[in-house]
Structures are given as structure tokens and as C-alpha cells.
């Protein structure tokens, strides 16, 4: 690598990591100042966050919504991808576009539409409505990932299994799902990450029980604080862990 590309790489990484590094560093503040001078390291603010019921409740809510909505999105996406890839159906191009459509619409509009319907029906917003919204935005991704991975190799293996006497249910359970396990996991962890990080739908479609990004949002009104640094770092850490698990589980295996 020559000097110029190397310098660019270093600068780019500095830019990319500047905010994140600042956030993580000052989450270990000892005093009450949100930024420098750095007087840590101390776990004081992490302790404070963990003893804050609002934050821990929001954390549990977030994990709950992310896990369940992702499981549902992956299941629906898998079934749709299997149906579309293995059966010749009229209008399959139209169906594909319909299932993918929510990707092209901003989360704000998805949330606004759902909010209007929920209000018109006289129903209340809750974690349930947040979960419904998160399935809407994650279903297209799960479907697209799984549909793309249902290639000829899988199809031939399924055909061979049928030839050896397997029923449709056995084909799906013993051949399709195990062969697609990496893609299914990838779709699930991607969904979990996106749902865990999502703010606007969760903000519009919840009231009393909220997710972590929404709780952070309400704390933001009082400005910068080391407590926010700690909770923000924690959110980042969870997302990064999910991505790293994905990387190790899926991509390492593929080699």
C-alpha cells in the first residue's frame, strides 16, 4: 500500500470512529461532565444506568420487541420465499414487488400510516403496535435474503429428497431449513439489529411502555450527560455484538 491510499484510509477511519470513540470514552467518565476533561475510567454511569428502572424496562422492551418481531418476520419471509421459489404462480413478479415495497418507503411514513389506522380504529398504541411496525419493515429484507439464497443447489437437493420418499413437510424440515440455516440466521440477526436500533416507528406507535431508543430520546431533552454516554455506548455494544455474531456464524462458515 502506498502512502496516499494509506493516509486516506486512516483519515476515513478517524472520521468514521470519531463520534463512536468519543461516546464510548466519555461513558467511562468519573465526574458529571459529559465531555472532556476525561476523569475516568469509572463504571459509575453504567451502574447508574442499570439501577434506573425506566432504562432497564426500556431495555427489556427493546429486546422483547426485537426478538419476537424478527422471529415473525423471518418466518413469514421464509414461507413466502419458499412458496415463490418452488411453485410456479401467476403474477409472481407482482407479488415480489408487493413484498419488497415497504423497503422503498421511509420508516416515518410506515409509522404514520399505521398510527392513523390504529387511531381510526380507536385502538391504543403499545409495544404490540411497535412490533407490528417492525415486522412490516423487516419482512421485505428477510424475504429478499431468503429468496436470493434459494438457488438451484437447494432445489436439486429438495428434488433428490422427494425422489427418496420425503414428504413436503420433511423436505422443508430436513433439507431446506438446514441448508438455508446461514441465510435464516443472517436475516434474523439483521432484523434484530434494525429493530433494536429503530426509533421513529417505536416513537409514534408506543406510549407508556417504550423501547430503548425512545427512552434515550426523552433523556436527550435535558442535553448532554455522561449517563446518556453510558446508555448510548451500551446500545452500540449490543448492535455490534449482533453484527459480529452474524459475521462469525455466517460468513466464517461459508469459507
Amino acid at each position: 500500500m502506498r502512502a496516499l491510499p494509506f493516509a486516506y484510509l486512516v483519515l476515513a477511519f478517524a472520521f468514521i470512529y470519531l463520534p463512536v470513540a468519543t461516546l464510548v470514552l466519555f461513558s467511562f467518565q468519573g465526574g458529571t461532565l459529559p465531555v472532556s476533561p476525561f476523569d475516568g475510567p469509572s463504571l459509575r454511569w453504567y451502574r447508574e444506568v442499570l439501577s434506573d428502572d425506566d432504562l432497564t424496562d426500556a431495555l427489556v422492551n427493546s429486546l422483547f420487541v426485537a426478538t419476537l418481531s424478527s422471529a415473525l418476520a423471518v418466518t413469514l419471509g421464509f414461507l413466502a420465499a419458499y412458496g415463490l421459489a418452488r411453485h410456479t404462480l401467476s403474477g409472481s413478479v407482482l407479488i415480489r414487488s408487493l413484498l419488497i415495497a415497504p423497503i422503498t418507503v421511509s420508516y416515518l411514513i410506515v409509522g404514520l400510516g399505521l398510527l392513523i389506522v390504529v387511531q381510526r380504529l380507536g385502538l391504543g398504541v403499545s409495544l404490540l403496535t411497535v412490533g407490528i411496525g417492525h415486522v412490516v419493515i423487516n419482512l421485505p429484507l428477510c424475504f429478499a435474503i431468503l429468496y436470493a439464497s434459494m438457488g438451484a443447489q437447494q432445489e436439486n437437493a429438495e428434488r433428490a429428497a422427494r425422489d427418496l420418499g420425503a414428504t413436503e413437510a420433511q423436505v422443508v424440515r430436513l433439507i431446506t431449513v438446514p441448508m438455508l440455516a446461514p441465510a435464516i440466521l443472517a436475516a434474523f440477526f439483521l432484523s434484530v439489529t434494525l429493530s433494536w436500533d429503530e426509533f421513529i416507528i417505536a416513537f409514534l406507535l408506543s406510549r407508556f411502555d417504550v423501547t430503548l431508543p425512545v427512552e434515550i430520546w426523552s433523556l436527550l431533552r435535558s442535553g448532554l450527560s455522561p449517563r446518556l454516554n453510558a446508555v448510548g455506548s451500551f446500545v452500540f455494544l449490543v448492535s455490534v455484538t449482533a453484527v459480529l455474531i452474524l459475521e462469525i456464524l455466517v460468513f466464517r462458515k461459508r469459507r
Partner: peptide
């Protein structure tokens, strides 16, 4: 196909990549 007394050796073999040879042959 599943109910016929025939089996097929496919052109690309269509072995199940997630199973051992023993499980493939015993499928």
C-alpha cells in the same frame, strides 16, 4: 416421484451438504 420404486442419480449429484455421507446414504 416419492412413491415410485425408482431413484435417481442426479447430474450434479444433489448431495445434502449439511449431512454426513452416512446420513446422505441413509436418507
Amino acid at each position: 416421484a416419492a412413491k415410485r420404486p425408482t431413484t435417481t442419480v442426479f447430474q450434479d449429484y444433489a448431495l445434502f451438504p449439511h449431512m454426513s455421507l452416512l446420513d446422505n446414504v441413509g436418507f
